[in-house]
């Protein structure tokens, strides 16, 4: 349990810093890194809060050193499409292995291995 407590404390700390950062970012920073955010309403800014809190280290770097995004000819997504196909050849095998373990792996003697009514 101690390990889980530590993990949750670190995660909580990360997100608490992120929440403070997010307030500053959506009010000032978003329009520094993206011109389309200039003049955007509070609906958009509120929607950007959770992502800003989650990705704050990356956004902080972008905010500190904003770079102009250069639009290039869009790249083909061939690699993604092939990974999709490969992933769906592997996923059914993983699903069968997990379900087989859960079904055939024996019964928990304490009976508290899962939620109960």
């Amino acid at each position: 349990m101690a390990g889980m407590d530590w993990f949750l404390a670190i995660l909580g700390g990360y997100l608490a810093i992120g929440a403070v950062f997010a307030v500053a970012f959506v009010t000032r920073g978003a329009e520094r890194i993206d011109a389309n955010a200039r003049g955007a309403g509070w609906g958009f800014r509120l929607m950007a809060v959770p992502g800003s809190a989650a990705l704050w280290p990356w956004l902080a770097m972008k905010w500190a050193r904003p770079r102009r995004v250069v639009t290039l000819t869009p790249r083909d997504t061939l690699a993604h499409r092939r990974v999709h196909l490969l992933a769906w050849c592997v996923i059914p095998l993983l699903v069968v292995a997990i379900v087989a373990w859960g079904w055939l792996g024996g019964v928990d003697p304490t009976g508290v291995g899962a939620v109960s009514p």
């Binding site: 349990m1 889980m4 407590d5 949750l8 373990w101 859960g102 792996g105 024996g106 019964v107 928990d108 003697p109 304490t110 009976g111 508290v112 291995g113 899962a114 939620v115």
Partner: peptide
């Protein structure tokens, strides 16, 4: 009195059965 998140995330059975995994 424990943190509810910790309680839920560590919920599992005992022994070597799949039920012992913190699902």
């Amino acid at each position: 009195g424990a943190n509810p998140l910790t309680v839920v995330l560590t919920m599992s059975g005992s022994g070597a059965s799949p039920g012992a995994f913190p699902f």
